[in-house]
Design a protein around this nucleic acid. Structure first.
Length: 256
DNA sequence: ATGGCAATGTTTCATTGA
């Protein structure tokens, strides 16, 4: 199974990038974040014609997640949101695909350390951690893929000194990310040797991408039963180039 | 070489993202 995650920063705008990428990369499952579409406007017909079935949880303007599955594979037991956690923001959808419990997650950005949004982020991560733990208790094979809005370590940051203490790298956020791992998840990217300076997000401003001033904040986490099946994990940096790129690049993991 | 903010709606600016 080839499993990818991509924060598209508006599915509407990114469809002309997504469709040829699906055709060339041919992933089996794609977790999308920041679709920014209410469900009535989700382009499921277009994706269907492209050979994929989409399951989604969206809202107007902000957030929105989806799990897109190649025809021939069934997605079952769709669950939207975090059960038992009241949240007006659409940030999680889960489905079982080919025996793997797949979760597409969009962790809150947090805006600035100490802000209301930062407090919301940390509280959301607590609820998500409990949800991941419950999912791991019920399923051996789990993949949690998405935009975590946390760079786990300094090597995931282009310039750790300039980012120290800032949102996306602050210690409470990194502790929350370690809390995800502590439930029994593994960062698939770090199962393999990776080139230094590999990131998944670059600011649109200030020549962020040309200067490779990026962060690795998009991740594919695998349960310990599933991790040994992972043969590769890479970030598709080429998708940050060209016409109207998202500010995020896809992360692609392959499972034998 | 890459590209010098982008997307949305509240729309000609404010808000949010990271």
């Amino acid at each position: 199974m080839k499993l990818a995650t991509w924060n598209v920063n508006s599915l509407n705008v990114r469809l002309p990038r997504l469709l040829p990428w699906l055709a060339s990369e041919m992933p089996d499952v794609v977790c999308l974040q920041e679709t920014k579409l209410e469900d009535a406007k989700f382009p499921h017909d277009v994706l269907h014609d492209a050979g994929y079935e989409a399951h989604f949880a969206g809202q107007k303007t902000y957030n929105g997640v989806a799990i897109v599955v190649r025809h021939g594979l069934a997605a079952t037991d769709i669950v939207r949101g975090i059960p038992g956690y009241a949240d007006t923001q659409q940030r999680v959808i889960a489905a079982t695909v080919d025996g793997v419990r797949v979760m597409s997650v969009y962790v809150p950005n947090g805006q600035a350390v100490g802000s209301d949004k930062y407090v919301y982020k940390l509280g959301w991560c607590d609820a998500a951690r409990d949800y991941f733990a419950a999912t791991l208790a019920a399923h051996a094979d789990v993949a949690v893929a998405g935009d975590f809005n946390v760079a786990p370590e300094d090597r995931d940051v282009h310039d750790p000194a300039s980012w120290e203490g800032q949102v996306l790298v602050s210690e409470p956020e990194r502790a929350a990310f370690r809390g995800f791992l502590a439930t029994g998840l593994v960062d698939s990217f770090r199962l393999f040797d990776q080139p230094p300076g590999t990131f998944s997000w670059w600011d649109y401003r200030m020549l962020g991408f040309p200067k490779n001033r990026g962060l690795r904040i998009d991740h594919v986490l695998l349960s310990k039963a599933l991790a040994p099946r992972c043969t590769t994990c890479r970030i598709d940096r080429a998708m940050r180039k060209g016409e109207k790129p998202s500010d995020h690049a896809p992360v692609i993991a392959e499972l034998a």
